[in-house]
Amino acid sequence: MSTQTSPLTSIRRTLSSVDMRAVAPFIALIVLIIAGAMVNPRFVGLDNLANVATRCAFIATIAVGATFVISSGDLDLSVGSMVAFVASVMILFMNTQVFASPLMMVLTAVLLAMALGALCGLFNGVLTTKGQLEPFIVTLGTMGIFRGLTTWLSQGGAITLQAQEQQALYREVYFGRFFGVPWPILITLAVALLGSLLMYRTRFGRHVVAVGSNREVARHSGINVSRVRLYAFMIQGLTVAVAVILYVPRLGSTSSTTGTMWELQAITAVVIGGTALKGGSGRVWGSIAGAFILELVGNIMLLSNFISEYLLLAIQGTIIILAMLVQRSLTRRA
């Protein structure tokens, strides 16, 4: 609290002009990768890193949408159930085989998933804004609704893609590569790029952050707060649909346990990425890093030979808290 300017505080000032909150998750990522390499040299193998990046594609794309919802001051707990519901409807549609051509079937199923995802997001958004309900309660409710509908559609069992031609064709979306890079990684990067353009380069992006910082101020400065929040929920729905489009070709099957706890993983990824849970700031690329960190932690522990399988969750929790503590100490302002 001294009024004098010492050399130390001026250094601190230069440091804080580099936005540490934005950089911190990437530093954590590098630290983790070094730690992983020490635990098991195979960890840094390209195949392993590609596996992990591909696996985190679902949470990463969902986290991009969650960044919008959380930055605008809302919360969506229904995304995990939404994944299960949209994926189940998509597979059931593909099983009808209304078109003879497998390619036509897959393409229409993709469009259907996008539309359904947007609708689910719209549903959450309308209830929250027009119904003026707490997003926590609304999405807790829709979490149950989507999960229940999935269980009902599958009668508790599994919904499996039946047509072999469709599966053979569609499988490539998860397992295939483009110039050596798995498709899910490319699609995740594309979603993040679109998300960051929308967040940082458009008026809508600025409005999202403004609405999340202070609703009243945003309203008085002429922003249609309800519409911004509604659109954020729809973007969340669309990113869930993208995650579904990547998810279905992997196992070609859903069950009533598909996507359980994914909402918490997505929210954790967003927060690790530097977005404040109370709204008012959005870090799209940080959320991607957060999702990657989450998946890496599990991967490193599995590849290690010295961590008891019983302690996995405890260590995972510790690492997340440590990462957040480091981030907080880096971003603390004088």
Binding site: R42, N51, R55, S253, T257
Partner: peptide, 22 residues
């Protein structure tokens, strides 16, 4: 090795991929 897959097909996929690396 023995690891938990939570009786869940997605978690089992993840654990198996890591076994194959390990």
């Amino acid at each position: 090795d023995r690891q938990f897959g939570n009786w869940n097909r997605d978690d089992a996929f993840r654990v198996m991929q890591d076994y194959l690396t390990k």
